[in-house]
Design a protein around this nucleic acid. Structure first.
Lengths: 152, 152
DNA sequence: TTGGGTGCAAATTCTTTGCAATCTC
DNA sequence: GAGATTGCAAAGAATTTGCACCCAA
């Protein structure tokens, strides 16, 4: 048996520090939400987060969820996505290797991948346009071979 | 003086064919919208399209705009974006060299760029995951050097 | 003529806001 | 205690839908 620091612990520290530095309050809701987010291994939206917390008898309002997600975005503990639908999706991002996504257009399934060439492109762009690029979003959309939509 | 085929002409042909093949009606609204879209050199949203058509005395309902954009997306005459806000943005896409975008996080300004390595990444992914990738969306977010946000 | 398309307004969906009550600091 | 934060419900913004009327085929 070993004592170990989990990713949630680490996230908790970062969040705690962020709250401290920005003089924000350490409310139980905020930490409960962080925990829920970090216990989820998938992408999720506000509604499903709301539901799963409610099921676990931890009731927070949607307003608080939206608020807290903003804080978590600020300290980069979560990432926000718009896969194309209306609603935003989120995923935890700490110690989660930088990656991008492929969205299956037939099922909506999300595949993660990692390609170093994206960093090269980023570096090139920073040089060409004299920019500081903070982040990016990249999605490829497709279907398994031999299973493309047979649209007219 | 020469007779030439404009991009709008070509788009018109493609749209016309698409409507024909799918047994959809060639209504004046649809062509008016196509024209408006192709006369716009920027990215736009439904609301601004609605307004600019209204100003030109061509009144179409928002519902028709949304409908028609779907058709134009189907035949790839426009591309749809979600730069991060709620509302979707569109841009004409015919004869518009494949490109991606950099969004300035300070001003919202959109810079277009083109990098062939993206096609390489796409090809790699298709091989690895045995997929047929139909399209992608890539955005880099950043600010000019020496002008980053000074957030705590 | 006839079913697809249009406009309008109402309905939905997702997110934000206002405000009284509550809880950190 | 003071002021930030919460929950709730109402407001907003973007998009979709229902339906009577209209028009392209």
């Amino acid at each position: 048996m070993v004592t170990s620091t989990t990713i949630l612990d680490r996230a908790h520290e970062i969040f705690d520090a962020h709250l401290g530095v920005n003089k924000l309050r350490r409310t139980p809701e905020r930490f409960a939400i962080l925990k829920e987010v970090y216990e989820c291994d998938d992408h999720f939206d506000i509604e499903s987060l709301y539901t799963s917390m409610k099921e676990k008898k931890y009731r927070v309002s949607r307003a608080t969820l939206y608020n807290t997600m903003e804080l978590l975005l600020d300290c980069e503990l979560v990432r926000k996505h718009r896969f194309g639908e209306q609603q935003a999706h989120y995923e935890k991002s700490l110690h989660h290797k930088q990656h991008d996504h492929i969205i299956r257009t037939d099922t909506g399934e999300v595949i993660e991948f990692c390609d170093p060439r994206i960093q090269n492109i980023k570096a090139t762009l920073e040089d060409i346009f004299d920019l500081e690029i903070s982040h990016h979003s990249l999605y490829f959309y497709g279907t398994p071979r031999g299973k493309q939509k047979e649209k007219v």
